[in-house]
Design a protein around this nucleic acid. Sequence first.
DNA 1: ACCTGAACACCGTTCAAGT
DNA 2: ACCTGAACACCGTTCAAGT
Lengths: 232, 232
Amino acid sequence: MVEIAAQAAAARHRTPLSKARVLETAVALADEGGVDALSMRKIAQALGVVPMALYKHVANKNELLDGMIDVVVGQIDPPAVGTDWKTAVRRRVLSARRMLLRHPWAPGVIESRMKARANPTLVVMEYLDSMIGIFREGGFSIDLTHHAMHIMGSRLLGFSQELFEDGSGRDPEPDMPPPDELAERFPYIAELAMAVAHDDESVVGSGCDDQFEFEFALDLTLDGLERLHSTA
Amino acid sequence: MVEIAAQAAAARHRTPLSKARVLETAVALADEGGVDALSMRKIAQALGVVPMALYKHVANKNELLDGMIDVVVGQIDPPAVGTDWKTAVRRRVLSARRMLLRHPWAPGVIESRMKARANPTLVVMEYLDSMIGIFREGGFSIDLTHHAMHIMGSRLLGFSQELFEDGSGRDPEPDMPPPDELAERFPYIAELAMAVAHDDESVVGSGCDDQFEFEFALDLTLDGLERLHSTA
DNA sequence: ACCTGAACACCGTTCAAGT
DNA sequence: ACCTGAACACCGTTCAAGT
């Protein structure tokens, strides 16, 4: 009797439940109805499963949201090889934009999860590391690379908050490798973090003057507009 | 007996309940604990009032969120007079940034409400209209002003989604004046909307090529970085 | 006519009872 | 040991009963 029911369930959904299948379904539901209408109960219903079954594959809804972020950020094309930095950055940002058009809920979820976690997820760090790498391999100084990342701002992931807030004093995420392993895996982020922390002598904490970076980016934009205005 | 209770309540809160007081309390609670932790029940509790009493001053939670947006956007300084466009834009954007640092929940709420409504709220339109006005009074062509607003993007209100999505077919908001009155009240928005709609011959709908605007802004940014890179 | 408590339909998650 | 239904503590909002 129980076996028959189990077989019926297996027949209805030929693949057994897995974290990947839960995340795919969640992404699809968010694409359709927005993230506000997404609930554990609806995901379970879409999978033909009792709500509590999801908790075998994701610890809670926050971990589900982190997993959804990883799914969609993983859809961004890897950096182009054999081109100059400018076309490499351009192509990658346009690929990120195509992803964000497919998943309009993504910027908000990435931003809110970023505020709650001590670090971005590993997949997001991977993306940022390789983006920093494009500038560094293109011959940008560390300082200019730092400014560049701030200037790109919302074009990288569709929102404009800081990517690395001050996470000191917060509990590290359980899935996060130790700092030395992170530094090895994301060399460009590590290089930038070291340089910024060392460079800045007066302020402790994040070691990055957000106000300066904001004004730097604003002025670059205004200068660009002024140039267009005067030549038009 | 009832009068005594009423007097006691009036003594505890010397000002009677009003929409302004509800909104102020909601903004303060969101500043403290974030917008996710904000609920009608908690606002009522903070005001020493039964939850249902709030519904006398705001129709529902969406209207409450709209009201909160208006409160904080109203805190942005008006445009400076007697200066060139560049310093006027610069000062105003920095004023907007100060507001967003005080109310970190604001970008997310503005963005999500923008998606749900056919138009931004009147206070947001006021802000955008006067920002467009700075460029126009500074001698910018309509086209360049249009590009400029897209380029300013996330610096205006802290997020990067489109400010005017295609709202055709959606019910107009009940508090929204008729189109002709809107055009009179927000002349710069009206001028821009007319020009964009007329300019664009092939596409119906919003009449604004978002992909083109995105790439225009991206290329301006990349050109600015290239200039810094080569002169450094 | 006004106010409001109870109730409804949701939600994420805990927990104990069932197998 | 595993799975899951009931239950808990929330939520926004409706509605009818009370004054």
